[in-house]
Simulated assay, not measured.
Amino acid sequence: MSGENQQVDASRTPDAAPTPVPVPVPPAAPAERPSRVRRLAVPALYLAGAVAAFGYVGAVDPNEPGHYPVCPLFRLTGVLCPGCGGLRSAHAFAHGDLVTAFGANALAVVGYFVFAGFMTLWLVRAYRGGPTPKFVLRPRYWWPIGALALVFVIVRNLSFGSALAP
């Protein structure tokens, strides 16, 4: 027996794994489009939150002391941050006074219009059933935005940029 060729039947060994049988996958059912009300719910909630915030700031005047906390950076250093004057700007904006709003914080007013444009785009697309706009800024866009905010802070804290100070 030592010199004979022995063939082992693999089907009879207990260690042999059965060959897998492919299982047919049923085709996916077409996804149902959500109703117009469901598509509009999320952007409408964001818009309702922004309107509520502007409503509150419009009703409670930030020009009167004691209603809102003072900016900690301004209180400790006397330096105006990019947000200083933002509440006064929002108050004036809520009352329709764009000149005063721009004088309180020009960067905030630009932000209000960017937000309004984004919300309009989102609501129109949700109403029509289009894709949700993705508001994801790549790092290459954050650098110019940060540089703009830094220039805004520097200029509004210098004597020649006093028009940008609240």
Rank of each mutant, 00 (worst) to 15 (best):
Arg138Tyr: 04
Gly111Gln: 03
Asp97Asn: 15
Ala101His: 00
Asn157Gly: 01
Val109Lys: 06
Phe115His: 09
Asn105Glu: 00
Pro133Tyr: 07
Leu98Met: 10
Gly130Arg: 13
Asn157Thr: 09
Gly129Thr: 01
Leu98Lys: 08
Asn105Lys: 08
Arg140Asp: 13
Val151Gln: 01
Asp97Glu: 14
Phe113Glu: 04
Gly117Gln: 13
Pro131Ser: 15
Val114Ile: 08
Gly117Leu: 06
Pro139Met: 00
Gly117Phe: 05
Val136Ser: 08
Gly146Leu: 03
Val114Leu: 03
Phe93His: 06
Ala126Lys: 01
Pro144Trp: 08
Pro133His: 13
Ala92Phe: 15
Phe113Asp: 06
Ala94Asp: 04
Gly129Lys: 04
Phe135Leu: 02
Val124Trp: 01
Trp142Met: 13
Leu121Val: 05
Tyr127Ala: 07
Gly111Pro: 15
Phe102Thr: 12
Ala147Arg: 11
Val110Trp: 11
Asn105Ala: 04
Arg140Gln: 14
Gly96Arg: 10
Val153Cys: 10
Phe102Cys: 11
Ala149Asn: 12
Leu123His: 02
Val99Asn: 10
Gly130Tyr: 11
His91Ile: 01
Ala108Ile: 10
Arg128Cys: 13
His95Gln: 08
Ala90His: 12
Tyr141Ser: 07
Val110Met: 12
Ile154Trp: 15
Leu123Ile: 05
Trp143Val: 08
Pro131His: 15
Val124Asn: 01
Thr100Cys: 02
Ala92Thr: 13
Ala94Arg: 14
Pro144Gly: 03
Phe115Glu: 05
Lys134Val: 05
Val110Glu: 06
Ala108Ser: 15
Gly117Met: 01
Ile154Asn: 13
Tyr112Val: 02
Arg125Glu: 07
Ala149Ile: 09
Pro144His: 09
Gly111His: 03
Ala90Asn: 10
Phe152Gly: 03
Pro144Ala: 05
His95Glu: 03
Ile154Leu: 12
Ala101Ile: 03
Ala101Arg: 02
Ala94Val: 12
Val99Thr: 10
Arg125Phe: 06
Arg140Pro: 15
